[in-house]
Amino acid sequence: AQCYYDLGYTLVATSPDKALEFINKSLEIRLEILPEDHATIGLCHHNIGVAYYNKSMFDEAIKHYKEAIKIYEKHLFDEEEYQYNVTECYKLCHSNIAEIYTKQGDYDSAFNFKMKVLTIDKKTCHLTEKEKEAQCYYDLGYALVATSPDKALEFTNKSLEIRLEILPEDHVTIGFCHQDIGRAYYNKSMFNEATKHYKEAIEIYEKAVSTTKKTCRLTEKEKEAQCYYDLGYTLVATSPDKALEFINKSLEIRLEILPEDHATIG
């Protein structure tokens, strides 16, 4: 059973049909020889779910993820050590189901599963219900910002609204909301609105860290050269003439202040 499982696990990303064949064989053997709620049977269902996800058979994936969840719930506090972390697998199944529901546009179900993930995760289980709610709305918006910017704006603005109620107005997570609202507006080609929210985010980030560790040691001239380089780099594919202008300006400054064989001149 373990060998069939391992074969299937190895193939789940590249050959999901073959993975299903092997993991189902493992499941069949385990159901013959183990209790039906044994943790390794949960693992089979989990990875059958992953295989169906990779085949875009989302309803089948959800079905097996939920089977895995039922089994994992019985083993969260086992003293026995397994070859994998049951709690992490339990959390991952919830996360994967939330992702599918988001793809399917069932945002209420996605929200509920995301809330469960935050409750399970050691990094977020201490958050208040309102903080978790704000994080779930933020995560939904983040997932949709490239494909459905209007929906992303709805969710990220909801997250922002909650965070402004419960957190200091310069809290870094409020900066995250403004940044992603900016991204959504950018993806809608509403550049003035995007700029406005990016600037809001910058103001908050500046209070959190005045300068980054990587660049705080630079002189003003070095920072200036880096800015010209970054502008040029951003434009090199779309506006090569403008890119040349900025990168040549960066090169000119660096040749004044750095050894001619400095890596940044290269």
Rank of each mutant, 00 (worst) to 15 (best):
E165I: 02
S159D: 05
H262I: 03
D261N: 13
Q226W: 15
E256P: 06
F246S: 06
K196Y: 12
G232Q: 09
F246T: 03
A263Y: 09
E169A: 07
Y229I: 09
K196E: 03
K213F: 14
E154F: 15
N187K: 11
A237V: 10
F191L: 15
E256D: 14
T156Y: 01
L244G: 05
G182D: 00
Y186R: 14
A225M: 08
Y233T: 05
E165S: 07
F246H: 12
V236H: 11
T212E: 15
P259C: 01
K196H: 07
A263E: 15
G175I: 00
E169M: 05
P168F: 04
V209Q: 15
T234Q: 09
I265R: 09
E206D: 11
G232N: 01
L231F: 14
Y229D: 07
D180T: 09
Q179F: 15
E245Q: 04
K223C: 07
L218H: 06
I257Q: 03
Q226R: 13
L244W: 05
I162W: 08
I253K: 09
P240M: 03
S250D: 05
C216P: 02
R254P: 00
E260N: 11
I257C: 03
T173N: 15
D230S: 11
G232Y: 00
E252Y: 02
N157Y: 10
T215C: 04
K188L: 15
D261Y: 13
E224K: 11
V236K: 15
R183L: 10
C177E: 05
A201E: 10
S159K: 04
